[in-house]
């Protein structure tokens, strides 16, 4: 085909540009869907999946995390380098964000990486830190988020879970899917994934977990702290050889 023809026909050029660019994406991304090592196998000794979808409360916390734009300053991916391992802990696994829609990997770190922040600080620390970071960390440049103490709207949690179910997160609708989750994750986890019980589960976790220091109410802070406290804690790395996850690459 003569170049002349392409340059004089903008519609044709558009199609050809799209084709040329998509080759790069197709070659790099599509094979990952078929390579079996892409997502690591992370199972307990009795064959249950360690990485589970977020509970309703954690999922609401994640939504608030995204709403507040936390990802603009915080990444959620510990890269496989020694300096990162020393500061943050074990590198992140692909399996650990398989239920994240959208994932929060990121590369912008004005604040620290949060992929393994779960369990590192107390609930109370998080509450005070989110309300006014400088109360606990002198010189922090993080904004205040005092409005997280507002009540949490729990009414639409089932709809949110249904939406995630549509894109492949195994929240269960009906008995058959629930039984499948019992097989995959164990009964305790499977109960938290039932869309039918979503709102009740959410409130129960907020009250028993007492994330914001007040059992009586369910605030956005409850959800946010519950989410932060689960980050990076689902995989128990002590159950694996320390090079087990290297064998997937």
């Amino acid at each position: 085909m003569k170049h002349d023809k392409i340059e004089r026909n903008i519609g044709l050029m558009l199609v050809l540009i799209l084709l040329a660019i998509s080759i790069g994406g197709l070659v790099e991304i599509v094979p990952l869907f078929f390579i079996k090592d892409t997502v690591e196998v992370v199972k307990t000794a009795d064959g249950k999946e360690m990485v589970r979808p977020y509970t309703p409360l954690e999922q609401r916390g994640r939504d608030i995390y995204i709403r507040e734009g936390c990802y603009l300053c915080h990444s959620q991916m510990v890269r496989p380098f020694r300096d990162e391992a020393l500061r943050y802990g074990h590198y992140s696994l692909a399996a650990e964000s398989k239920y994240d829609h959208p994932f929060q990997w990121g590369s912008k770190r004005t604040g620290p990486d949060l992929a393994r922040v779960g369990g590192k600080y107390s609930n109370d620390w998080h509450v005070k830190h989110l309300k006014d970071p400088r109360k606990v960390v002198e010189g922090s440049v993080m904004p205040n988020y005092p409005w997280l103490m507002d009540p949490l709207d729990t009414s639409d949690i089932a709809a949110r879970m249904k939406a995630l179910r549509t894109v492949g997160v195994p929240y269960s609708s009906g008995e058959e899917e629930y039984q499948r989750n019992v097989q995959t994750f164990g009964e305790e986890v499977a109960k938290t994934l039932r869309i039918e019980d979503a709102e009740a589960n959410l409130k129960e976790q907020a009250q028993t977990g007492n994330y914001d220091g007040n059992k009586a109410d369910v605030t956005e802070m409850d959800a946010m702290v519950a989410y932060l406290q689960v980050l990076g804690t689902m995989v128990d790395f002590k159950q694996f050889d320390d090079d087990y996850f290297a064998t997937f690459r």
């Binding site: 496989p80 391992a85 590198y91 002590k238 050889d241 090079d243 996850f245 290297a246 997937f248 690459r249």
Partner: peptide, 19 residues
Amino acid sequence: KDGQQVEKTTHWSTRAQLM
């Protein structure tokens, strides 16, 4: 996981390199 030390040789990957 039982605390045994094992010497290994593998193809190049960032994760093996980190080890």
